[in-house]
């Protein structure tokens, strides 16, 4: 039996992620554990963006805002738990539903207005909303405004899921990453996903056969925001720090780059994109302090020559193998 290249690479990367903790432990390099943790969290955020950007052709340029909302739920909870001694505010089982509620509410409102616009105007209006939330963060004097908020305790998920232990945290995130991938696969293949993908190719035709496209797109937009909110909860716990910078438009740009680089509208593309971005940044910045002077032109080359991103390249490889 021949295994397609794409499947092999996908399975290989999951296995590779799964064996990172024992390896970093054996090599006594906890830094790389943290690096891969960040990679997976950003991958979850990128997958959520891909849901609307890749499958639904909704280029949201404010997606990092939902990550910021999730992160601020954790940050503000921990802040009051430490400052005012309200212990239950540090409970992770409270943080996650709250983050989902807050980020999906934000996405619902933003989506309801934005989805009425098309093309570049959609890009710009989501950017505007993202920047609005960014400035909300900047204006939060109590929670550190510009400077952000240090997290003195991580979300409390009880003893079994004690995420102060980075290895346990790592496997929790890995499980969530797999769940997100599986959920995306099911969602995209469902009737709902069919409508979203259909809207990418011809919205008018869908409307003509009686499908309320606007509502479908809005639901997809909201779901993507909710998933990204969860990624925000994880990222805040990973960095032990929350700041408005997480919501800056360049962070949203990073997410878009991960999706486009990895391959829009593919299941594993965003994971590859996140991996490349995080690892390239890490290793190039190890080689030279001025790594961006290499990485910038690299992005230009990818945009010009490598259409379809990494997942597209894998598919082309498979086709050539015949």
């Amino acid at each position: 039996m021949r295994i397609p290249v794409g499947t092999a690479v996908a399975a290989g990367s999951i296995v590779a992620l799964a064996i990172v903790p024992p390896i970093t432990e054996a090599l006594r390099e906890p830094f790389y554990l943290g690096l891969c943790l960040r990679l997976m969290i950003l991958a979850i955020a990128a997958i959520s963006l891909n849901l609307i950007l890749g499958f639904g052709n909704m280029v949201s340029f404010g997606h990092a805002a939902y990550m910021g909302i999730g992160a601020y739920v954790v940050g503000i909870g921990a802040f009051h738990a430490v400052e005012d001694g309200i212990d239950w505010l540090a409970n992770g089982f409270l943080h996650v539903p709250l983050a989902i509620a807050a980020s999906s509410l934000a996405a619902l409102v933003i989506g309801a207005i934005s989805i009425r616009t098309r093309g570049v105007y959609f890009i710009m209006i989501t950017l505007a909303f993202g920047q609005m939330l960014y400035f909300v963060g900047v204006g939060l004097e109590v929670y550190g405004a510009d400077d952000g908020l240090s997290l003195y305790m991580r979300s409390d998920f009880g003893d079994v899921l004690d995420i102060n232990d980075n290895t346990r945290f790592y496997y929790l995130v890995l499980a969530l990453l797999l769940a997100t991938l599986y959920g995306t696969k099911r969602l995209v293949a469902s009737r709902f996903g069919l409508v979203i993908r259909g809207a990418r190719s011809n919205e008018r035709r869908l409307a003509a056969i009686g499908i309320p496209v606007y509502r479908y797109k809005l639901v997809a937009f909201t779901v993507a925001g909710a998933i990204c909110g969860v990624a925000g909860v994880l990222l805040a716990n990973r960095t032990d720090f929350v700041s408005p910078d997480m919501m800056h438009w360049t962070r949203s740009g990073d997410l878009i780059i991960m999706v486009v680089l990895g391959g829009m509208g593919t299941l594993f593309g965003p994971l590859y994109g996140a991996a490349v971005l995080v690892l390239v940044e890490e290793f190039l910045s190890g080689v030279t302090e001025h790594w961006q002077i290499v990485f910038g032109p690299l992005l230009v080359l990818v945009a010009v020559y490598a259409r379809g991103g990494i997942a597209g390249a894998l598919r082309a490889l498979e086709r050539r193998r015949g």
């Binding site: 570049v120 740009g253 878009i256 961006q292 990818v302």
Partner: peptide, 26 residues
């Protein structure tokens, strides 16, 4: 990039931002 998708343009020009910022820093 003129005839391309807006996303390709976003990617390329974002790359140019990184390039110019770093160039200026050097």
């Amino acid at each position: 990039l003129y005839s391309r998708d807006h996303l390709d343009q976003v990617l390329a020009t974002f790359g140019l931002i990184l390039f110019f910022n770093e160039l200026a820093r050097i």
